[in-house]
């Protein structure tokens, strides 16, 4: 099956600029808050949270702490999964109680991941508020969930998928739109 070559949505420079804008928006709203924390969703959300942390630190001289969530055990599709993803530890090196949380993910799609993440955060404690930062919003929501900070908003087709590629694990920096063959399952 032939696949169309992927379209580059953001190159390295544009990706960095987009994150700058997101960090600025977060800093503007919550930068002065001592209770601000960033929680990245594994895997790429964690790296994005680290970058936002650095940028927010430059802007406000304050470095919000970072936590990591692995939402695997909170997924709603276990009975249908033939292959279970490996469960990785979550780590919130702070008490979630009364924190102002910015949840960070790479691509916002059905909203199911965010639903799982919200359920999980509540198991750690009761935050004062939770906001959502997504590098790309590609539409197709199945739950009533919206992001507060969006880097790039897109209208995508059903057979398209957005891939965020980061130096830390992919060895390159870009966001691409990949077209899947129509009979792809």
């Amino acid at each position: 099956m032939k696949t169309k070559s992927p379209e580059i949505l953001l190159d390295e420079k544009a990706l960095n600029k987009t994150l700058d804008a997101m960090a600025e928006a977060i800093a503007k709203e919550l930068g002065g808050e001592p209770s601000l924390v960033l929680i990245g969703i594994r895997t790429r959300g964690v790296f994005l949270a680290q970058r936002l942390q650095e940028k927010i630190k430059k802007m406000t001289k304050k470095s919000p702490p970072i936590g990591t969530l692995d939402i695997t055990l909170y997924r709603d599709d276990f009975s249908t999964l033939a292959k279970h993803p490996i469960v990785r530890p979550s780590s919130l090196p702070f008490d979630v109680e009364d924190k102002k949380v910015v949840l960070v993910d790479d691509v916002l799609y059905t909203g199911r991941t965010i639903r799982a993440a919200l359920d999980q955060i509540v198991d750690f404690g009761r935050p004062a508020l939770v906001k959502l930062a997504a590098l790309v919003d590609r539409g197709w929501r199945e739950y009533p969930i919206q992001a507060d900070y969006v880097g790039l908003k897109l209208t995508t087709k059903a057979n398209q998928t957005v891939q965020v590629r980061l130096a830390e694990i992919d060895g390159e920096e870009k966001v691409i739109l990949v077209e899947l063959p129509n009979n792809h399952s």
Binding site: T72, L73, P89, S91, D123, F124
Partner: peptide, 13 residues
Amino acid sequence: GFKEIFTRSIKKV
């Protein structure tokens, strides 16, 4: 990954 759950306040998934 499962061992981390024991350190949470709600030790249940």
